[in-house]
């Protein structure tokens, strides 16, 4: 029983972290209809920003998370304006190619600048507690709480703030939104920045929990795309549910059978979901 509880708790915290990466990606796709393949690189850069701030310079942890989020927000906004704006309205393949180039550049220069050795970020809290025989570290609790908090904050932002309304309007219909006086260009870089910043915060959390290397972005991109496709592109709630499903598969199947089977199984699950619901669990039909 306690084994299952342990697996469930691990899966839940893992799933929330995955969801955080995936929600950023789904926001970017929903608003701009572009494939941002370098999303995992934002995740990696976010983790390294915190590493240099906290482990190398010894500055406070939470300020480092905020610094990292702000930095990656600016980076995302600049990338959108410089690289992705000219591709607006073109076939989705072009944005895929450009972001693929970004992946090569960022992960390549990451290996040059940061080195290829594995690094760790010292965590902000220590200790843990036992719940019904399952061990739960305070670190995982804090990380899950941050994930939940950010997801709720984003939801509230999209629902109740003026900018959030603008973002949703552009996602719904960019031309009508522009006719209503919404500055779509501004909405685009804001949404891109927010999406990237969420990946960066997820990177900070993941970097504290596990370890960081410059090549970790690719795996994060894969996970994020798996989740987003499973839940339906452009759907925030879909990304959350997809993240939890993937986290549970990862946790349960890895402990009971093996890691290889967990990956094969998660791809099979995605394939089946797409066959029976061709637009994902909560997706609309994009063409």
């Amino acid at each position: 029983m306690s084994d299952f509880l342990q697996m469930g708790l691990t899966g839940l915290s893992l799933g929330l972290m995955y969801a955080l990466i995936a929600i950023g990606l789904t926001l970017i796709f929903g608003v701009m209809r572009i494939i941002q393949y370098a999303h995992g690189e934002m995740f990696m850069l976010g983790a390294f920003a915190l590493y240099y701030w906290h482990a190398e310079l010894g500055l406070p942890y939470w300020a480092g998370v905020a610094f990292s989020a702000g930095l990656i927000f600016c980076l995302g906004a600049v990338l959108q304006v410089v690289l992705f704006k000219p591709l607006q309205g073109k076939n989705i393949l072009y944005s895929l190619a450009v972001s693929l180039g970004l992946v090569l550049i960022i992960s390549g220069s990451g290996q040059l600048l940061f080195g290829t050795t594995t690094k760790g970020i010292p965590s902000a809290v220590s200790g843990g507690m036992l719940i019904g025989g399952a061990y739960l570290s305070y670190e995982r609790i804090v990380i899950s709480a941050v994930s939940i908090g950010l997801i709720i904050a984003l939801w509230a932002f999209l629902r109740h703030s003026v900018t959030g309304f603008a973002i949703r309007a552009v996602a719904e219909d960019p031309q009508t939104a522009a006719l209503q006086g919404i500055r779509t260009d501004r909405v685009h870089w804001i949404a891109f920045g927010i999406g990237s910043a969420m990946a960066a915060i997820a990177g900070c959390m993941m970097g504290t929990l596990l370890s960081i290397v410059p090549t970790m972005g690719f795996l994060a991109t894969i996970k994020a795309f798996m989740i987003v496709i499973m839940g339906g592109l452009g759907s925030v709630i879909g990304a959350l549910i997809g993240g939890l499903i993937l986290g549970m598969i990862d946790s349960v199947v890895t402990t009971t059978i093996s890691g290889d089977i967990a990956i094969i199984l998660s791809f099979v699950v995605i394939f089946l979901i797409l066959v029976f619901r061709p637009s994902g669990l909560f997706g609309q039909n994009w063409d």
């Binding site: 798996m226 094969i264 791809f267 995605i270 797409l274 066959v275 061709p278």
Partner: peptide
Amino acid sequence: PLMRTRAVYFFMASWAVGEVIKR
């Protein structure tokens, strides 16, 4: 089954197929 999906979803479904073959 694969041709039931469309556009972006096709990319990802075919990606899953390729990854399962490799794994």
